[in-house]
Write a protein that binds this DNA or RNA. Structure first.
Lengths: 206, 206, 206, 206
DNA sequence: CATGAATGAGGTTTCATTCAT
DNA sequence: TATGAATGAAACCTCATTCAT
């Protein structure tokens, strides 16, 4: 998306280094916040001097961008997952997709926290990208529910609100895992909320 | 809690000024982030010079603290609200308390966003205070549900998870209002989620 | 011209400080060059910390700009000088104006050296301004000579080249004074070149 | 003069590479200034990596030195030129030497501009060398004029000032060619100034 | 009480130079 | 010889904080 300056032509090396930089910087950003983390610290955390960072990255903002890109790339593609499920009932599809989504979110705690805190400081274009990724998830579930309704398998009346709640359950697990884990495992959390949602879409509502 | 330095002995003046400072600083922090907001800007926004700020506040961190305190003080006391309801069914109490809680959260968007983003930078003790406020809400609903169960009005099996979901619904409304408002009003959002929760606690689950 | 940032509202103070900054910075730039001179050094030379410089100036480039403006403002206005001469022969006017111009250049050694060396690094707009100032001088003498020709007092054939030579004599005195002073005073230098020029414009050339 | 470090023993290779380096670096220095030009850029302009530069040159300053030396070597030897003229009148010699000098300066725009801007940053010894080259030119013309006076062919009274003016005409053509070319060719410029000088040395002055 | 000039620590970034390969 | 990754000194600039007025 954004073009990040390099002084190296070794594509593979650049890829590796950026991977490390994004990973270690994310940790530091989560611990201390973006502005409180210095380039020197990031360098140290990557086993290099701060000067050397600038061979792989043009600026501190570029690192933020790197984290965003790495995250978006790593996000589960729900469409692909659904396709693999093949021909099953909408109830099954919805349950399985929710489970997959929650598993994905479980892996994303770091980036999610980071974006929740920092995204509003990003340049407009990047905010747009991050936002689009979230909306895509809502849309995915919304569409799924609508299809289920059209197929007369579901009966719910407010698909978008429900879809949004699903997003929120995932988001919440990622961000409040530290608290929730004291009481439930991911599996339990998933089971409970899948049941809750399925109940809502299959129960007659008036 | 924390002792904030003043050069003034006029208690009322200090209170007034701190109120303004906390309010205006919160706005700025939300727009630009804590570290990107300068004392000069805060001073200007308050109609005074940055130097004068230090007559009412010992440091920039103190302002962050002030916002925290102001917020905690301003939070709805659910216990009080419940007491006012008098003697009604648990179903009614739960529904009304949820509605009150959501109304409260609707008023708290600013502080909530701020804490979500910044609380991890606060000193340990203050993080504890903020955390406690959240846990108190979960506990309140958890206790309410347990009481309902004991009174054999409710049948739900995982009170803490449900209580947590309720907290989350409120939190979500505050933080994602900008998106949700395109689709529902606060009243609709409330009605929908109250219904959802009540259904869960009254439906036989296995 | 360019808008230079200040944090102070005290117009007079800002004026004074900028005057000092421009003056001392010019000295340093001449000794060490623009890029080799640090803001810290400039600050020290002005009896303040480098941080304080930024209360009167937005950047190092602004200082360069300040020097340019100060110089242009300080330049002799030849038109004004000519007007004061009143109604005398073109020969007298030309001689007197040359003398005035050379006196002016004698005062301008510093800025002139600085611009000779640094102007090509200035932003386009400022290069234009500086260039215009030089061309104005050439134009002034060119016009004067043409008038003299039309009045049939002068006989020279290449006004622009001669005007350019006059500019050059002045420039040269400023820049090579260190060498020339070993052999002539400003008065002698002036007398000699005025004679040279007048001889050229009054002698029939073919 | 200065001893420049090499890692190579191949004298001819070193000579060739230094020639390229000096030439390309000069271009860059003129465009961007000495300090703003990076070793990387110089390397690229020479078709090698910046690391490799250090096999032929010990430092960035060495490159500056190289340019100085290359220039001094390349300068026209007026003495040689005069010798070739053979036995002709001083008037002819002076005119021809001026023309030769101006032709030489026409070729030297780059180095001259560079020295005008940068020589004051050179170490003392190198400044001396560059200065000596200039003074040699003044001396050459001064001596020539004195000889003409002794031979009673010239009548001028201030040889050194005139000699200096001649230097200046050459210097001026080199440095302001961009402006002068709009109005005169080198030949016209030469003719005009040769005439001017010869007139001065042959006219009775008092 | 209020002002705003002054301080100086500390942050990001650049780049000449080195050196293992 | 040539490469280019790595180093680290040093530059510009910001801004919380102090304090004389």
């Amino acid at each position: 998306m954004r073009n990040i300056r390099t002084t190296s032509n070794d594509v593979e090396l650049v890829r590796q280094r950026r991977e490390i930089i994004a990973k270690r910087a994310l940790q530091l950003f989560l611990e201390k916040g973006y502005e409180r983390t210095t380039m020197r610290e990031i360098g140290n955390a990557c086993g290099m001097t701060h000067g050397n960072l600038y061979n792989y990255v043009g600026s501190k903002e570029d690192i933020r961008h790197l984290i965003l890109m790495r995250d978006i790339e790593g996000a589960t593609k729900l469409e692909d997952f659904r396709r693999k499920l093949g021909n099953v009932s909408y109830t099954t599809v919805l349950g399985e997709c929710m489970a997959d989504f929650l598993r994905g979110m479980d892996r994303m705690t770091g980036p999610l926290l980071f974006f929740d805190r920092e995204i509003y400081k990003f340049p407009r274009e990047e905010r747009r990208v991050a936002l689009a990724a979230e909306l895509a998830i809502v849309s995915f579930f919304e569409d799924l529910i609508r299809e289920g309704i059209e197929a007369e398998e579901f009966k719910v009346c407010n698909p978008i609100l429900l879809a949004h709640d699903i997003l929120m359950y995932g988001h919440d697990w990622a961000v409040r895992r530290w608290f929730l884990k004291q009481h439930v495992t991911l599996e339990e959390y998933t089971k409970e909320h899948v049941r809750l949602v399925l109940e809502l879409v299959t129960t007659k509502t008036n």
